[in-house]
């Protein structure tokens, strides 16, 4: 554990807490993309299958469980919890996440899994686990797209929603620093280039948002995206 990774994890947790608070306090899901959170839930469920097979640390296991439960409760609130679910604007949340996110990521994960030869010589179970892990890395990198597209529609960005996306984006940016740190200071560190590539892609997707977020913070005014 290094400081970048810890800050990254805390930023991730913080973003989830901000969103949970926003949903609970405002009892309102307008401007929030259900599709993004369903994608994140799928990311966590496919990545953390190692909860049952590999123990890293108490911290690691607790965080994984916390991510799954908190994301599941976000999905539950937006879908089913009255009165929040009535404020969810389904008509605006239109990104075709199966066709343009889940499908392509599944294809890409299968291709990279077999081309890299990763998992050859392992059991079928381990192969499936590796495949799911690779899939989750790809999917996480673009899971925020439905949310960013929804924001473009609304343009006026609520403070809490803005903060949520800012911390969600900072988390992967901090992970990049963590990978650089580990490369230098951890002997025998094993590189996962798919994770690096997707981590950079994920951070770049937020770049535009970061820019307008910073500008609005500096001006101290309302946050709105340009047309």
């Amino acid at each position: 554990m290094n400081v970048f990774r810890l800050c990254g994890d805390m930023s991730h947790v913080f973003s989830i807490v901000v969103l949970l608070l926003r949903l609970r306090v405002a009892k309102n899901a307008s401007g929030i993309s259900l599709r993004t959170h369903e994608l994140f839930l799928l990311v966590f469920l496919t990545r953390y299958t190692d909860l049952f097979t590999t123990y890293y640390s108490l911290y690691n296991s607790c965080m994984k469980i916390a991510y799954i439960l908190s994301t599941a409760s976000i999905v539950y609130m937006i879908r089913l919890s009255d009165p929040i679910c009535t404020t969810y604007d389904k008509a605006q949340d239109t990104f075709r996440h199966w066709a343009f996110a889940v499908g392509p990521c599944a294809v890409l994960a299968t291709l990279t899994h077999f081309i890299s030869g990763e998992g050859s010589g392992y059991s079928l179970f381990v192969n499936i686990q590796e495949l799911l892990w690779t899939f989750s890395i790809y999917l996480e990198s673009i899971a925020i797209l439905p949310q960013l597209i929804l924001l473009q529609r609304y343009r006026e960005v609520e403070n809490l929603t803005g903060n949520y996306i800012f911390f969600m984006g900072s988390y992967r940016a901090l992970y990049i620093l963590n990978w650089i740190y580990r490369t230098y200071y951890e002997p025998g560190y094993r590189h996962h280039y798919v994770a690096y590539f997707c981590g950079v892609l994920q951070t770049l997707l937020y770049a535009d948002f970061f820019y307008y977020y910073m500008q609005s913070k500096r001006r101290g005014g309302r946050f709105s995206l340009p047309t």
């Binding site: 991730h12 890293y56 690691n60 963590n178 580990r182 002997p187 590189h191 994770a195």
Partner: peptide, 10 residues
Amino acid sequence: KESSGSKDEL
């Protein structure tokens, strides 16, 4: 012991 790299991350 060999590091598991970014697989031990979240």
